[in-house]
Each structure stands twice: as structure tokens, then as C-alpha cells.
């Protein structure tokens, strides 16, 4: 448990969070690893984990007939998974490890339960999630603009 607490404490997502919360969150956490090419989750599956990446890279992909499109890659110190926050808790994309990837996964049911029990913890989680989600939304909008298209 002490090892998990240290890893959580050192991950940028939890930078500055109270030590009590680290101990609490460690109860939902475990170490996971994904080999290159292994799927972290599939579109439509139950969004039951939050992943804090420690090393490696993950591609967020959308499948289409006979192809898959990568919409974003994330790496060390990033997080994967926001759909566990919002009902019906279903993954919106595929997530595939591009290389050996090590992460901490936090069980979503456990996390949601602890946030319901302690709203201050819930607010801390939201304060950390919102900048990431906002940044990804802005990035997605820029991608849609296709600014490098010669006709733009």
C-alpha cells in the first residue's frame, strides 16, 4: 500500500492533494501494465477505471470499417478515462497501448463512492479533472479546424 501511496503522491494529477486523500485513494488503486498493442479498454465497454499513466503511451482511437483512426495519444503523467465520471459510464473510444505502458488504475465504483462520502474529495477530483478536460476540448476543436489544410 505504501508503494501505491508514493506513486499516487508523485503523479502530477494528484499534485498538492492532502495526504489523507492519498491514503483514501490508495484503497481504490492497483498497479497495471499493458503490453504494446494491448487494449486498455474498448469503445462501449463499462467505464470502470481511471488510469494514471506512469510510463508508455496510449492511443485513443475510433474504429471505422476496415480502419481505425487515432484521435489523440497520451503518455507519461497523463490520465486516461473520464467516462467513469458520467452515467451511463461507457467508454467512448478504444484505448490501445502503443508501447509497454505502466499505470495506476483506480476503481471507478470505489472512487465515486469515496467522492459521494466526502464531497471535499469530490471537489478536489473535479478541480483536477476540469483543466484536463477543458484542454482536451480546446485541442479537439483545434483539430477540427484543420488549420494546416491549405484551403483554410
Amino acid at each position: 500500500m505504501e508503494g501505491l501511496e508514493r506513486i499516487l503522491r508523485e503523479h502530477s494529477f494528484f499534485s498538492g492533494i492532502k495526504e489523507d486523500y492519498i491514503v483514501l485513494l490508495a484503497g481504490c488503486a492497483k498497479n497495471v501494465r499493458f503490453e504494446a498493442g494491448e487494449y486498455v479498454f474498448h469503445e462501449g465497454g463499462t467505464a470502470d477505471q481511471l488510469y494514471l499513466l506512469r510510463s508508455g503511451r496510449v492511443a485513443l482511437q475510433i474504429s471505422a470499417p476496415e480502419r481505425a483512426v487515432t484521435i489523440q495519444t497520451v503518455g507519461e503523467s497523463d490520465i486516461v478515462g473520464a467516462s467513469w465520471l458520467v452515467p451511463p459510464y461507457r467508454w467512448g473510444f478504444d484505448a490501445k497501448a502503443l508501447e509497454l505502458t505502466r499505470a495506476i488504475s483506480l476503481d471507478a465504483t470505489c472512487l465515486r463512492g469515496k467522492c459521494e462520502d466526502d464531497h471535499d474529495l469530490g471537489y478536489e477530483m473535479m478541480k483536477r479533472f476540469m483543466p484536463i478536460l477543458l484542454q482536451r476540448l480546446q485541442a479537439a476543436r483545434l483539430q477540427i479546424l484543420d488549420v494546416y489544410d491549405i484551403h483554410n
Binding site: 492511443a59 481505425a68 483512426v69 484521435i71 489523440q72 495519444t73 485541442a139 483545434l142 483539430q143 494546416y148
Partner: peptide, 18 residues
């Protein structure tokens, strides 16, 4: 990084600001 890629690209995908 590239803004768009098929799954055979193993580099970064996302805007350059990332």
C-alpha cells in the same frame, strides 16, 4: 505530432500545443 492519423501511425497524435 500530427492532428490526424490512422492506426498505423505510432507517433504522437494531437495538436502541437500539447
Amino acid at each position: 505530432t500530427v492532428d490526424h492519423a490512422e492506426s498505423d501511425w505510432f507517433g504522437n497524435v494531437g495538436v502541437v500545443t500539447n
